[in-house]
């Protein structure tokens, strides 16, 4: 027993946190993916004057569950000319960084799995693996469409990482911390979306690009590359890519909420409402997700060179300029 005692002493409340966290995050990831798929189809449908999923369950709410179970029952085809090992590894690898990112996201004041003091960086560091998994998966398929899609995905993701980091830098400069909780705390007076709207815009645009959502969905551009990097993936492997994509959407929106929209804090003029922070957090997050869905079903997609040039000619200079100006503003304000 003493050994157990030791462990408990060492990890302390962490043990319970880890277990609850893992279970909770897994549930969140799944529920979120199911809900988002449904939400996306519903919102898209109503934008297009349709109904969307309706017959499977009330309001079609069971639709994504049914889709998910169906995908489990599909055959897993490994193309003959593919690199079998990497082909099988990629869908698993794409999912690895997803859960880790949730470790540092502060859902509310208390509900935070681990408040690391390098929180923001952790998310970006692990999102790299996501990109790698896409590249490996696309390459291993030995399919030209996949290869084109994978290479585009990587080129796009790496390019948009720079303005993303620059936008985050402004926040970090203000809060002097990489810790998520402190970043939220630094917005107690003014949300960053109000104090630095340009950075917020840059962050949101780049985040859309990072998650390969329209109008930046070039890596999986249906009309050009069939299904992009996951052209050859069938059944559950495809579902994992899909799951990772929707989880990434959640992560990105949650990070945006934390960094720019005051996290779990209630809007300044609604502070009197007895609504828990968790609700505010998810309300903001899903509002952002709604916007990305809305954008997706409105615009055509950019061409690849336009996408890259948009990043290098507009986003990065704007982000750099913003950083300098904001650094000056901090000097003046403080």
């Amino acid at each position: 027993m003493a050994a157990w005692q030791n462990l408990v002493n060492f990890l302390g409340p962490d043990l319970a946190r880890i277990v609850v966290g893992v279970v909770g995050v897994l549930a969140l990831v799944q529920v979120n993916a199911l809900f988002l798929v449904w939400l996306e189809r519903k919102v898209a449908a109503h934008i297009q004057l349709r109904i969307g999923p309706k017959e499977v369950g009330p309001f079609g709410i069971l639709q994504s569950i049914v889709d998910g179970i169906k995908l489990v029952g599909k055959e897993l085809i490994t193309p003959r000319h593919a690199d079998r090992k990497l082909f099988m590894l990629a869908p698993i690898a794409v999912f690895l960084p997803v859960l880790v990112s949730f470790v540092v996201i502060p859902f509310s004041e208390r509900l935070l799995i681990r408040d690391m003091n390098v929180g923001v960086l952790l998310i970006f560091a692990f999102s790299t693996f996501n990109v790698l998994a896409v590249l490996v998966g696309g390459w291993a398929s030995n399919n030209k469409y996949s290869l084109l899609g994978a290479v585009r995905a990587v080129a796009q993701n790496v390019a948009y990482e720079i303005p993303l980091l620059l936008a985050v830098l402004s926040v970090v400069m203000w809060s002097n911390s990489l810790q998520m909780s402190e970043i939220v705390a630094s917005q107690s007076k003014v949300w960053h979306v109000f104090s630095m709207p340009v950075a917020t815009l840059i962050f949101l645009i780049c985040a859309t690009a990072e998650t390969n959502r329209a109008p930046f969905d070039i890596p999986e551009a249906e009309s050009e590359l069939v299904a992009g990097f996951h052209t050859e993936y069938s059944g559950m492997r495809f579902a994992l890519f899909f799951l990772a994509e929707y989880s990434n959407m959640l992560i990105v929106s949650a990070v945006a909420t934390t960094l720019f929209f005051g996290g779990w804090k209630s809007p300044p003029f609604l502070g009197f409402l007895p609504v828990p922070g968790l609700i505010w957090f998810f309300a903001k997050t899903y509002a952002l997700i709604f916007v990305t869905i809305w954008v997706r079903w409105t615009f055509p997609r950019l061409r690849f060179d336009q996408l890259m040039n948009f990043c290098w000619k507009i986003m990065i200079p704007a982000a750099l300029l913003h950083l300098v100006v904001y650094a000056g503003i901090i000097k003046i304000v403080r």
Binding site: V118, L122, F124, A125, T128, F129, V131, L132, V158, E161
Partner: peptide
């Protein structure tokens, strides 16, 4: 941990991807 994450960001996220 900071240097560890920098290692991931710089080496994995930048250098290795460029090499690929």
């Amino acid at each position: 941990p900071f240097i560890a994450l920098m290692e991931l960001l710089i080496y994995v996220g930048a250098i290795c991807i460029s090499i690929i």
